[in-house]
Design a protein around this nucleic acid. Sequence first.
DNA 1: CCGAATCCTTTTTGATACTG
DNA 2: CAGTATCAAAAAGGATTCGG
Lengths: 110, 110
Amino acid sequence: MVNIVCDPTFARVDKLINLLNRSKLLHILLILNLKQEPMRFSDIKRIVDSSSTTVTRRLGELEENGLVLRKSYSTIPVSVYYELTKEANNLAPTIQSMYDWVVEHDMELI
Amino acid sequence: MVNIVCDPTFARVDKLINLLNRSKLLHILLILNLKQEPMRFSDIKRIVDSSSTTVTRRLGELEENGLVLRKSYSTIPVSVYYELTKEANNLAPTIQSMYDWVVEHDMELI
DNA sequence: CCGAATCCTTTTTGATACTG
DNA sequence: CAGTATCAAAAAGGATTCGG
């Protein structure tokens, strides 16, 4: 029997959860998934209501992990758009299943 | 249209993810789910290979959130058993879907 | 055996100020 | 507009020690 506990894939699940846990990251994922079209930095920042530091960090991490695509245009001033990758969109059902779980077990998580 | 972004349920999804992100917690969940029977504190501690501080914290948080059941027996010395609740077992498919996602997109999460 | 208490380190966060 | 730099506070982690 395979020792599921030591399956290296679980280390990557850990990393995924760690990523999702960063502040505002899930929120960014959700609004981009909802929109399904590129969004500007300033709009994302306004909607998630956070500092530019935090938004920059989250978008950087998402891009670094292949979950968002950054497109920059040489307008003056520059405009930058972010959109989800296919991989990120494929994550939606997982997030939905977490959503369903907390709805079904209306427990007050601490 | 409902503003999905401000849906209060998402605050609880955040809490769930935050819980799952704690060190060793997912590991504890996995081994208990795999065993499907009560396990002793010392066995859990040995398998996840962590300090008693950490194991105690995680089991406390899991119990507090209705994910594990703690049963203590007045043997000498005392023996304490932990097992997953039905709610926790219902979380397995969600975790499985995260597993599937990281397998499918063999990205190296950072 | 099963923890609780203490204490110190590391990580994450976000406010503020600044720049091309 | 879209960030970077700095920095202090908060949260989380874990080693060690002690107790019923």
